[in-house]
Every structure is written in C-alpha cells, then in structure tokens.
Computed example of a mutant assay.
Amino acid sequence: MKKIVPDPPRLAPFIAIRPTLTREEATTAAVEVATAISDVLDIYFKTEPGEVQDRLFTASDYLGQLACALLEYKPEVRP
C-alpha cells in the first residue's frame, strides 16, 4: 500500500535571517520590504473580493512579519 503524503506547504512557516546580516543591511532590506507591502496592497485594493484578494492579503501579512523581524534584528557581537 502506498503511503499518502500531503503536498508540502506553499509558504515557509518562518523566514530565517542570515547571521552575517549587518544592522544597516537589515534596515535597507526592511525599507525594500515596506515598499513591496505598499505595492501588494495597491494591487489588493484594485482586485475583486475573492481568492486572489485573500492571497494578496496573506502575502502582505507575511511581508509585514518579515519587515518587523528585520527592524528588530540585532547582529550578534563576534570576537
């Protein structure tokens, strides 16, 4: 009997930030992500309610979480 395995999730459950990222790089990336959120929400408000609009909202939520993580990032001090 063949084992039934569900498809893997389409979106990762978390986003990892590389440990070599500097504070300046994280801030720059957060600004880029904020711009992407704005772009996604512009499309969201021009889209008819339904599945596509729901996916756009979910994408903006994930991007918001990424922006927060980047803004809260504190590089480890290494000797």
Rank of each mutant, 00 (worst) to 15 (best):
R18D: 10
L56W: 07
A30T: 02
P19A: 09
E72N: 07
D42P: 07
V31Y: 09
K46H: 14
M1A: 15
E76P: 03
V77S: 13
T28R: 15
R18P: 02
V33N: 01
E76D: 10
A26M: 02
P13Q: 08
T35Q: 10
T47F: 04
T47S: 08
Q65H: 12
Q65W: 11
A36F: 03
G50F: 10
I37L: 06
M1V: 04
T35W: 06
K46E: 12
R23E: 04
A59N: 11
E72K: 04
T27W: 09
P49D: 13
A69E: 07
A29F: 07
E76T: 02
R23H: 12
T28D: 13
L56K: 07
V52P: 10
L56I: 06
I15T: 01
L70Y: 00
A16I: 00
C68I: 06
E24Y: 01
L11K: 11
Y62I: 07
A16V: 01
A69R: 05
L56P: 06
Q65E: 15
A30P: 04
T35D: 14
E24F: 07
E76W: 13
E76I: 07
R78T: 04
K2H: 12
I15C: 15
Q53S: 15
Y73D: 02
E48C: 11
R10V: 06
V52S: 14
E51K: 15
C68G: 10
K74S: 08
T35C: 14
L70M: 03
T47P: 00
V52W: 09
A30Q: 00
L63M: 14
S38V: 07
C68K: 10
P79I: 00
T27L: 12
L56Q: 10
P75D: 02
E25T: 00
D61N: 14
D61F: 14
I43C: 13
I43N: 11
Y44F: 15
P9W: 04
L56N: 06
L11W: 09
P49N: 09
L63Q: 11
R18Q: 03
G64E: 03
S60N: 10
L56S: 13
L41N: 10
D54Q: 12
P6Q: 08
V77M: 14
D54T: 10
A26H: 03
V5P: 00
P75L: 09
I17K: 03
V52K: 15
I4R: 01
V33A: 07
R10G: 08
D39N: 15
R78D: 07
L70A: 00
A12W: 07
L56M: 08
E72L: 05
